[in-house]
Amino acid sequence: MLNPAEKAYCLALLALRKRDLRAAAEQFDRAGDFFSGDKEFQLLKETTTLALAVKAEIGRYENEEDFVTEEILNG
């Protein structure tokens, strides 16, 4: 009834609703070929990738700050 790509797009949106960006990105990747001409799909897919990249960068930054603080406190 639903083809695998449609199912993946649906699961991606449900994952976004739960703010599970990693799961959403995986499902968007699965649906990518089928919806390659769908602009709305592409926008959501790319924005999800961007959101993950920004969060990863923030995480990296905060880890670095923690490391510096620890270095200062512990000598």
């Binding site: 703010r19 924005t47 959101a51 920004v54």
Partner: peptide
């Protein structure tokens, strides 16, 4: 940098929430 990233993060999250 971190302030800008966090601001961007909030904007992207808000966009995704509204899109969904």
């Amino acid at each position: 940098d971190i302030t800008t990233l966090k601001a961007l993060d909030v904007i992207i999250d808000s966009f995704l929430d509204r899109a969904v």
